[in-house]
């Protein structure tokens, strides 16, 4: 069941959403744009496909962010994001009872290529993750909550819908530290939560 949900929320579904949004673009672009606004708030749901040696145990995650963005001149936005990711445990993972989740506190710049109509952007976020782990991979066990460095980079687009409201889609590459001890040989590949994260959200512009 979990795998089915994972597939449903996977890359293909996100791709369909992006295509749909792109298709309705010409009729949806309204007066709301970055140049009119001083800041915005967004709420975003996310789905993550894991990479690396952790992916057999935690193949995917679902979560979301609440974000605040403040516009600076010329398409640059300073973002502050608070979020959560809960990782799904593979049915094949042994022993059972393993857990991985993270509370994200990230900040960084977002660059809009344009602030009119469909607004594509690039971004980088860095910050802290408060990570709860209960992992047993045989040669390594961990049961703790720790504060780790977080890093993500990606691209996306904001689509104005009506008034101050817009839709937002994002694709990110995550490289969050899970254990800084991961640089040791025995933990290679377990040191980070890596993955591709896809997000769909709603923004509310503030003047």
């Amino acid at each position: 069941m979990k795998s089915a949900i994972g597939n449903l929320m996977g890359v293909s579904a996100i791709t369909v959403v992006i295509l749909l949004l792109t298709a309705i673009l010409p009729s949806s672009a309204r007066s709301q744009s970055g140049s009119d606004l001083s800041s915005f708030i967004s709420v975003e749901g996310t789905y993550t496909r894991s990479l690396g040696n952790l992916s057999p145990i935690f193949p995917s995650a679902a979560g979301g962010y609440v974000s605040y963005g403040h516009y600076f001149p010329e398409q640059i936005v300073a973002m502050l994001k608070v979020g959560y990711s809960g990782y799904e445990v593979s049915d094949n993972a042994t022993p059972s009872g393993q857990k991985l989740s993270a509370v994200h506190l990230l900040a960084g710049p977002r660059y809009y290529f344009t602030t009119n109509g469909l607004m594509p952007f690039l971004f980088l976020n860095v910050g802290l993750n408060f990570v709860t782990t209960k992992i047993d991979v045989g040669y390594f066990q961990s049961d703790r909550t720790s504060t780790q460095f977080g890093w993500q980079v990606g691209f996306g687009a904001t689509l104005p819908i009506t008034g101050p409201i817009g839709l937002e889609v994002q694709a990110k590459y995550n490289a969050h530290f899970l254990y800084h001890e991961g640089s040791t040989e025995g933990l290679e590949g377990l040191g980070n939560m890596t993955g591709f994260e896809y997000g769909l959200g709603v923004t509310w512009g503030l003047r």
Binding site: L51, G52, N53, F149, F177, E188, G189, G191
Partner: peptide
């Protein structure tokens, strides 16, 4: 490198 990501060198 994308899959395993950061370390300290």
């Amino acid at each position: 490198n994308l899959s395993k990501a950061w370390e300290y060198d």
